[in-house]
């Protein structure tokens, strides 16, 4: 299945290991990707603080580009996915709004007709490969690993824009896929909560409290790692973890993995090729635990 691939700014910036791991795994999943090089940032909900319609216009432009190419969009970032889903929800719900946005897009010779599908990598695994498609690709079941999911707000809410009504499994997509990879899924209340990243600039203290609270909570519930489909969550949970620990006088030391890394490892790929050495919280301990089979 072929997609217009929207990697998002962060996988090409602060989380290059995410982009790297996706590039490693996708050919083996039967996916074909055409990277959207001329698409812009979604606005990430930040631009929308200043001007929501501007944000919707930028996203409509991206949707129009994909529509022109006749491809659905694949994202690898909860935030990109959520912001795009919301924009598409607003645009397709109100024809007069769509027309107003198109009036501007016409300037660049583009029109959005409202037909583009936008799906996160996780949903594609869930809905295109399914349990069988994933299990059959697992070479190295990660049975020794206890992992907790961490979705990122934008992949959970608002559920109306994310199509949970028609695809109820999306609400628990991470748990399902993780279990198909053979590992033990650790449930904890923070899995659908906010990592605090959007608050980092304005109120670092509160942001770090959220990082500490969720990582410590996951650890208390027995997790060896936290798995996320959102690079922004990763930036905060991984990047700010030591500082968050310092605030609470706790040594947290909980590795945060991107979902494609976990998938790649289960498919028998080498940790280094998946960028697992490029994290701030070292993944080495967990890799050691998994033993020589993956080393």
């Amino acid at each position: 299945m072929k997609f217009a691939f929207f990697p998002g700014c962060v996988s090409k910036g602060g989380c290059p290991e995410l982009y790297q791991s996706v590039m490693e795994v996708y050919p083996q999943l039967g996916l074909e990707l055409e990277e959207m090089t001329t698409a812009s940032c979604t606005g990430a909900g930040v631009l929308q603080e200043k001007d929501r319609k501007l944000g919707d216009m930028l996203n409509a432009r991206t949707f129009a580009l994909a529509e022109q190419a006749g491809l659905p969009i694949m994202t690898i970032c909860s935030t990109c996915q959520g912001v795009m889903s919301q924009a598409n929800h607003r645009l397709t719900a109100d024809p007069s709004y769509l027309a107003a946005v198109n009036e501007i897009l016409n300037e660049e010779g583009l029109t959005y007709r409202g037909t583009t599908q936008i799906r996160h990598f996780v949903w594609i695994l869930l809905e295109e490969l399914g349990e069988q498609g994933i299990r059959q690709r697992v070479r190295r079941p990660l049975t020794e690993l206890r992992a907790a999911p961490f979705y990122g707000c934008y992949l959970q809410r608002p559920s109306e824009a994310l199509g949970f009504q028609d695809q109820p499994d999306r609400a628990k997509s991470l748990e399902l896929i993780m279990s198909w990879l053979g590992l033990e899924v650790v449930d904890f209340p923070g899995k659908t909560r906010c990592c605090g990243f959007p608050l980092l600039t304005i109120n670092e203290k509160n942001s770090l409290r959220m990082v500490a609270s969720h990582t410590l909570d996951a650890k208390r519930n027995g997790a060896d790692i936290l798995v996320t489909p959102c690079p922004l969550c990763h930036l905060n949970l991984d990047g700010m973890q030591s500082r968050a620990g310092g605030q609470q006088q706790a040594d947290i030391d909980l590795p945060i993995w991107h979902l494609p890394q976990l998938l790649g490892l289960a498919m028998g790929m080498e940790p280094k090729r998946l960028g697992l050495t490029r994290h701030l919280v070292s993944t080495q301990g967990v890799l050691d635990k998994l033993g020589s089979a993956v080393a």
């Binding site: 909900g45 707000c153 934008y154 959970q156 809410r157 608002p158 559920s159 909560r193 906010c194 605090g196 959007p198 608050l199 304005i202 109120n203 509160n206 942001s207 959220m210």
Partner: peptide, 16 residues
């Protein structure tokens, strides 16, 4: 001011 409109973390729980 601190504690006001800029302290929302945009998690959308309230919308949901």
């Amino acid at each position: 001011e601190p504690g006001g409109m800029w302290d929302c973390t945009r998690c959308m729980e309230c919308i949901e």
